[in-house]
Amino acid sequence: MPDAPLPAAVTAEPPAPAGLRIGHVHLKVADIERGLRFWRDAIGLEEQQRYGDQAVFLSAGGYHHHIALNTWESAGGDPPPRGTTGLYHVALLYPDRPSLARALKRLIAHGIALEGASDHGVSEALYLRDPDGNGVELYRDRDPTDWPRDATGRLTMGTRRLDLQALLAEA
């Protein structure tokens, strides 16, 4: 599709509704069982359904699926090289700090290395990769009343190192 401005009628449409959510993410993986060891065992999602040995659907709390893994176009494949387009990361939102702390303990128990851990003021986040190189963020939001703001009330998010020992103490 060429880079052309959208017609005025399209740009004048109202924005997406505030209740819009990401329902699920499908990830192309090289090996279903390897993916399950990460998403089910290390992250803790529950297996909901399988399509033979080609796809599996996982969720938290019995939802039909938050994450699906499939090998339809990727069985035995390599992760995309850096410097190419694609998924940067999928973010899983935890309900509170103790839940995020328990997720960190689980990652440690499964030998999963973190790529980073940040306090963004509005949230606290752990960054890692799944076995297929997909970026994963595990995070919790702070209450909006605790978000950092300047004197005009404008958000002032930033990035500081997250204290992992203090987080683990919450588990």
Rank of each mutant, 00 (worst) to 15 (best):
L114E: 09
A113D: 14
G133F: 14
S99C: 09
D146R: 13
Y127I: 09
G133L: 13
K105D: 06
G121R: 02
P95D: 05
V136R: 03
A117Q: 09
M157I: 06
L100S: 10
A103R: 11
A113E: 14
R154A: 15
L155D: 05
P148N: 01
R106P: 08
Y127G: 10
G133W: 14
L155T: 08
R140K: 03
D150L: 02
R149N: 01
D96W: 06
L114R: 15
L138N: 00
L155G: 06
R154Q: 12
K105E: 05
R102M: 09
D96E: 11
W147T: 11
L128Q: 10
L107W: 14
G153P: 12
R97A: 07
A109V: 06
G135L: 10
A125K: 03
Y139L: 12
A151R: 13
K105R: 15
R97Y: 05
T156W: 04
R97H: 09
R149L: 13
G111E: 02
P144L: 04
K105M: 00
T156E: 06
A125L: 03
P95S: 00
T145M: 04
P148L: 01
L104T: 13
T145L: 11
D150R: 05
S118A: 10
R149E: 01
R140T: 15
D141K: 04
Y127M: 04
L138G: 01
P131R: 03
P144N: 03
A117L: 09
